[in-house]
Design a protein around this nucleic acid. Structure first.
Length: 426
RNA sequence: GGAGAGGUGGCAGAGUGGUCGAAUGUACCUGACUCGAAAUCAGGCGUAGGCGCAAGUCUACCGUGGGUUCGAAUCCCACCCUCUCCGCCA
């Protein structure tokens, strides 16, 4: 959420920055809401002040045993106006809040300006795609032939966009998550968490999934009419740890890593990536989250992205790092790097991690603050990134490490988590 | 699922219709004393927001939402959460 003060004082600037993301800020609507808010709020607070003063006077008079009827008559006349004012104020404040909460974040000045994916900027490439002396199969064919990937049965059990893993490939999936967790906790200084997979609406609002993106989520109805939401990423439960808190400066930065399944409705992506386990309703991800002071967040974004890159490098998977352009960034991000892994069967790089600095965008929605050096409460900065998406990492290994005989070599770095197994199949 | 207790400021803990945004203790900050520290003494010390150039001033907040009242931390209703015991359970 943007700072309402910023909107008031620099509306044209905000409008201009949001325009780079292809978002049109309705300045006239904001100004009329703001004007109305100001008027109603001032009037209402004025009435409240008069009511409070009169009530206090009544208390004092009664204490002295004096007559209060004239004051009571005066304040009684305020009742209706006061009630009407308070109701209108509540409405206009809610409208204003909803308006501000619906605005995406301002892109950081270093973000390349562009309209779409096509305008993203490649920052670096790592590794050299392997050349094959046989016909390359995609992960579906590789995994199915090994008996480790079974989409038909998953479809019977649940439906489209689910996967059933079996045997060595299921084990590799588990090993990947363990390898990622151990690397981030033992070498990168993250604290491991186990967190709820279902959260309340407040948490979804805090990280920005609600109210705008409800259709992307799965919800679980509860008996009382409320609902839980299945997390689309561990970012949600983990970042909300600091919701409604004031952190001491000494406790920062907070660095958390959390392995969870992620659940996404994939509404609106019909027909995209229908083959294989690239785009699923349920997939595992190891998520990195950092909660930092504002002066640290840009360095933290580089570091966090580097932590995710380490996993790809250890697994010797070729990848590239992309700076998303203004038009392609997510709702809450001030800046995002995507890491894209090489998939030989598609002959292209595909997203395997997305690392973002949200600056105060999420923290303001969550009222997540810290005590600064002046002893004042200040809004924190939040960041997160995949380190990595486990399912897509498995896909990348199946494709990049496939052999002519149909087997798959286990990347050397992963073998300690695979009981020393060097190869799956054949 | 059944029975009971409770949710007040960073923490502890008073307050059961009016001068209560809230005693007191503790923590913390500033000053005095001290070579320095401790102890002691004095002062300060919640959050969010409005208006104002500023000094300042006003509003809201005592789990949440309603209600009664001129006035609610305090009374009424509903809900949420926590704790204890019983039952059930991975």
């Amino acid at each position: 959420m943007l700072d309402a003060q910023l909107l008031r004082s620099q509306l044209a600037f905000v409008q201009e920055r949001l325009a780079t993301r292809g978002y049109t800020l309705d300045a006239a609507r904001f100004q009329s809401l703001e004007e109305e808010r100001k008027r109603i709020q001032t009037d209402t607070q004025d009435l409240q002040a008069r009511r409070n003063a009169a009530s206090k006077q009544i208390g004092q008079l009664k204490g002295k045993g004096e007559d209060t009827s004239s004051v009571m008559a005066e304040v009684a006349g305020l009742g209706d106006a006061l009630k009407a004012g308070e109701e209108r104020l509540a409405v206009v404040l809610a409208d204003m809040q909803a308006f501000v909460a619906s605005l995406p974040n301002l892109p950081h000045e270093s973000v390349p300006v562009g309209k779409s994916e096509a305008d993203n900027v490649e920052v670096l490439r790592w590794g050299t795609p392997r050349s094959f002396d046989f016909e390359v199969k995609d992960h579906v064919d590789v995994g199915t032939a090994l008996g480790g990937l079974d989409f038909e049965t998953a479809t019977k059990i649940s439906g489209a966009r689910f996967t059933l893993l079996r045997g060595g490939i299921a084990r590799m999936h588990r090993a990947l998550a363990q390898f990622m967790l151990d690397t981030h906790t033992l070498e990168h200084g993250y604290t491991e968490l186990y967190a709820p997979y279902m959260v309340n609406a407040e948490s979804m609002f805090g990280t920005g999934q609600l109210p705008k993106f409800e259709e992307d989520l799965f919800a679980v109805p509860r008996g009382d009419g409320s609902k839980f939401y299945l997390i689309p990423t561990a970012e949600v439960p983990v970042t909300n740890i600091v919701r409604d808190t004031v952190q001491s400066a000494a406790s920062l930065p907070l660095k958390f890593v959390c392995h969870t399944p992620c659940f996404r409705s994939e509404a609106g992506s019909y027909g995209r990536d229908t083959r294989g386990m690239i785009r699923q309703h349920q997939f595992d991800k190891v998520e990195l989250v950092q909660i930092v002071t504002p002066d640290q967040s840009w360095a933290a974004l580089e570091a966090l992205t580097g932590h995710a890159e380490t996993i790809l490098q250890r697994l010797e998977l070729p990848y590239r790092k992309i700076a998303l352009c203004t038009g392609d960034m997510g709702f809450g991000a001030a800046k995002t790097y995507d890491l894209e892994v090489w998939l030989p069967a598609q002959n292209t790089y595909r997203e395997i991690s997305s690392c973002s600095n949200f600056e105060t965008f999420q923290a303001r929605r969550m009222q997540a603050r810290f005590k600064n050096e002046q002893g004042k409460n200040e809004i924190l900065h939040t960041l997160n990134g995949s380190g990595l998406a486990v399912g897509r990492t498995l896909v990348a290994i199946l494709e990049n490490y496939q052999q002519a005989d149909g087997s798959v070599v286990v990347p050397a770095a992963l073998r300690p988590w695979m009981g020393g197994v060097e190869r799956i199949g054949a």
